[in-house]
Design a protein around this nucleic acid. Structure first.
Lengths: 162, 162
DNA sequence: AAACAAAAGAAATTTAATTCCCTCATATAG
DNA sequence: CTATATGAGGGAATTAAATTTCTTTTGTTT
């Protein structure tokens, strides 16, 4: 993994429809070696998948709610079931086990407050939860699937330029 | 936008490398009309973009930190500058203006605690912030870019939007 | 400097995207 | 009712891109 791979990843994180030939040109390679690098990174799992991103407003899911969940030390059994139940909801797009005050944090997307309430009722109907608190996002100022590539380990340390 | 469009979106949200011909077969169409539906949804902005998703572990960004920021009513100027500064950090992958106790919420991705500390120092060096608190994710139980399609309007949406 | 390995590139081939043209169903005006 | 526009679907040709094959370059080791 060198600086060319990193350049390729940067571009594919922005737009994966880019033709290999065009990508190669931007990176300063010809299509074959560029294609091979992409293949390798897919085999190695560096590139996990390629997906289409939708406009939340256009599909009626413009409201994001962060749901903080506190549990006073439940059993392992409860934890397992809790995860299974939560993961199934398509409205839950992110789900973390946290350190500190909050034990679990969910990001939930819905059309509006009413839909959130409906979701909430469905959730607590499926599993008993001690303490839940919801915080609504008023505005999504940034959302990206692009990960920083600055921390990638590079064998050939030709780091620095672009 | 009908149920066929929704089927197409569901599949493309999972895997956008799917060939139009295969997609068409799964949906129950031939390639031409299927292709045209995809084109239309891209023109309409329903499909925002197509991207490659990377494996966080493989690019050394497996730690997620949620950063809660409280500000005792700052000026509009400060707000503007704050947003501009924060958005520029590639480590900040999500950034919300919130209702309630917390005013802003960031999701930050870094390799480890030390790198978070370095990020934190760089951030506060660039802008004065009243109250910051950081919560570390111990585990990412779910992360998806697939939005729920259940809330999409089903009928012929002729009503002028946009 | 010879020999090898690893990466790059040109050109041919295969596969998929895109266009063109036709059919069918529905709806609407004359 | 009939004629005619309209919109969606489909087959087949065309164009563009992905993939493979083969050759060349580059860098390293002995």
């Amino acid at each position: 993994m060198d600086r060319l791979d990193r350049k390729i990843l940067r571009l594919l994180q922005e737009d994966s429809t880019l033709a290999v030939a065009d990508l190669a040109k931007k990176v300063g390679l010809s299509t074959t070696p560029c294609w091979r690098r992409i293949q390798k990174m897919e085999e190695d799992g560096v590139i996990r998948k390629r997906v289409a991103l939708l406009d939340p407003a256009k599909i009626n899911t413009k409201v994001t709610v962060f749901v903080s969940i506190r549990t006073n030390s439940h059993s392992t059994e409860w934890l397992k079931r809790f995860s299974e139940v939560i993961v199934e909801f398509p409205e839950v797009v992110e789900f973390y086990r946290m350190s500190g005050e909050v034990d679990y944090l969910l990001r939930v997307v819905v059309p509006d407050i009413a839909a959130y309430d409906a979701f909430y009722k469905r959730m607590i109907a499926r599993i008993e939860i001690r303490d839940v608190s919801s915080a609504f996002a008023m505005e999504q100022i940034k959302y990206t699937t692009e990960m920083p590539l600055d921390y990638m380990m590079v064998d050939n340390q030709k780091s620095g330029e672009e």
